[in-house]
Amino acid sequence: MQVPIMKQGPYLIATIQGEIVDEDFIHLRTKLVRMVSKNRSRGVVIDVSSLDTLDSFATRSLRDMAKMIELQGAETVIVGIQPDVALAMVRLGLFLKDIITMMDLEDGFSYLKKSQGKRISHD
């Protein structure tokens, strides 16, 4: 299943819906990186709220994605990790320490806005 990507101002939103197979992650990564560079996006929000499992492969895919997007000059926020999924992840040993995680789209956007604001004011 293809992951839809929406453009909202300087940001992109990717909503991962239901079940996703490994190949979809690779597609998503390629597409996101291309879109970030084409639109000169400042940030990407990846919504995983409809995923009921996040194993080490999915987590690694998300992290790789974030790192590649970072190289394009944009920030990535992952939003919507469910309580039970979060608990399974930490028990498994997946902490996503170097990735920003937020509750939902709203928090994701307000984080990105604040973060951009800081970047600009400090420059």
């Binding site: 939003v79 990790i81 902490f95």
Partner: peptide, 12 residues
């Protein structure tokens, strides 16, 4: 500690 880490993954 695990609980704190899980909460962080959720954005809290």
């Amino acid at each position: 500690i695990l609980t704190i880490d899980a909460a962080r993954l959720m954005g809290a």
